[in-house]
Design a protein around this nucleic acid. Structure first.
Length: 281
DNA sequence: CACCATGTTCCTTG
DNA sequence: CCAAGGAACATGGT
């Protein structure tokens, strides 16, 4: 479930559940989920601390926890299959839970089958991120500057978190469809009109997804649906609804919603790209 | 069994 | 030094 919109919806959901809660216990079931510090340092720092705030930066969740009058960042990234949710302490521990933070009656569970995600106390990864696409600092001019030196296809470049923070493989294809730009276009060759269109499309696609995600009934804990791709504890119906909203992603061979031409799938830098060969030039 | 998957980082090649 | 490509990480679903 991890591109900017999914993380944003998750952050909004978790923030009120965690604010002010004290951490009593920290269990690390798989040390690979702790990045850039030893599990013992991680446990030592967090135990006894209190959740102060939570916000999103790109695809990262950024917690601030307070320990003896000191604020520490706690950074989480969900990778491909990571999930983060609040559960009753008494509920059964899921198979792939790798970190469990106990706060009295409730626990914050980090679960990650593939272990591409993780948590860290080191804020260094945030320093490499480009602008937040939904904030005013993300202008067409700034986007243009970030793209100006690259001959890489624009679709590939949109996945570069230093260009814009938070876009992943799904929304990269979706944004380019909305902007009507061929994903194979060399990044540096986009003119001002197209840069403006791309900036607007990125913002529209991401905000629409956040709006949609915010309306979902957030259902945690009890019935962990087998493998949901988007959001969390989401019913199969919601996932179907979500996919239905996608205009090109995973729609190879299906007709373009705008012109009826079959959607094409190509591979760029080892990842699938979907686009309409007629609408996107 | 083969192939595919929402992501990032590191190493190599040019 | 830089840009770009590819492998690696690890597991599960189809």
């Amino acid at each position: 479930m991890p591109e900017l919109p999914e993380v944003e919806v998750l952050v909004r959901h978790l923030a009120p559940l965690l604010g002010g809660k004290s951490i009593r216990t920290v269990r690390v079931m798989d040390r690979r989920s702790i990045r850039r510090s030893s599990p013992s340092e991680f446990i030592r720092t967090l135990t006894g601390a209190r959740f102060q705030s939570l916000h999103r930066r790109g695809k990262y969740l950024v917690f601030s926890v307070r320990t003896h009058r000191r604020n520490h960042p706690l950074i989480a990234h969900l990778g491909m299959t990571g999930r983060l949710y609040v559960n009753r302490r008494s509920s059964p521990r899921p198979k792939h839970a790798t970190i469990v933070i106990g706060m009295g009656r409730d626990t914050l569970v980090f679960e990650d089958a593939r272990r591409f995600g993780g948590m860290t106390l080191d804020p260094a990864p945030l320093a490499r991120l480009g602008p937040e696409p939904l904030e005013p600092g993300f202008s067409a001019a700034r986007l243009g500057r970030a793209l100006s030196t690259s001959r890489q296809p624009i679709k590939v470049k949109l996945l570069d978190q230093a260009v814009v923070a938070g876009i992943g493989n799904i929304y990269a294809s979706e944004a380019l469809f909305l902007a009507r730009i061929d994903p194979r276009t060399a990044s540096r060759s986009l003119n001002r009109t197209r840069l403006r269109r791309l900036r607007a499309a990125i913002r529209r696609v991401l905000s629409a997804a956040i709006r949609f995600g915010s309306t979902l009934p957030l259902d945690f804990g009890s019935t962990v649906t087998s493998n949901d791709l988007f959001y969390y504890g989401q019913s199969a119906g919601d996932e179907a609804h979500y996919r239905e909203r996608l205009r090109v992603y995973d729609r190879e061979g299906q007709r373009c919603r705008r012109c009826g031409t079959p959607i094409r799938k190509i591979v760029q830098a080892g990842r699938s790209t979907f686009f309409c060969p007629c609408c996107q030039t």
